[in-house]
């Protein structure tokens, strides 16, 4: 049972590291979305369903969409 915690923690940490240190902007945004999914799972494991729902809808949904819209407006064709 403790393996789920370890898997979620490692997944979130790894994708967040990719998001910060990656070179391309689009891959960074996608890694941020994955880190938000890992964060949603973490909030669920911490017995916080309200916060998990908010993190899923806002961070993995609308925030990623905002990033991609802004990147498109700046003329990125996909790094």
């Amino acid at each position: 049972m403790g393996y789920i915690y370890l898997a979620v923690v490692l997944f979130t940490g790894f994708t967040a590291a990719i998001a910060v240190f990656s070179r391309g902007r689009v891959s960074s945004v996608v890694a941020l979305a994955l880190a938000s999914v890992g964060l949603t799972a973490s909030f669920y494991l911490l017995q916080a369903p309200d916060v998990a729902m908010a993190e899923a809808v806002i961070s993995a949904g609308l925030s990623t969409a905002l990033f991609l819209f802004a990147l498109r407006k700046m003329g990125i064709r996909g790094d």
């Binding site: 369903p49 729902m53 908010a54 809808v57 806002i58 609308l62």
Partner: peptide
């Protein structure tokens, strides 16, 4: 999600963002 925010997880913020999408 908005309308049953007081009995179940959810509420105005989460449901509002879903409605906006």
């Amino acid at each position: 999600i908005v309308s049953q925010g007081h009995v179940s997880p959810g509420g105005g913020f989460q449901g509002g963002v879903v409605i906006s999408s």
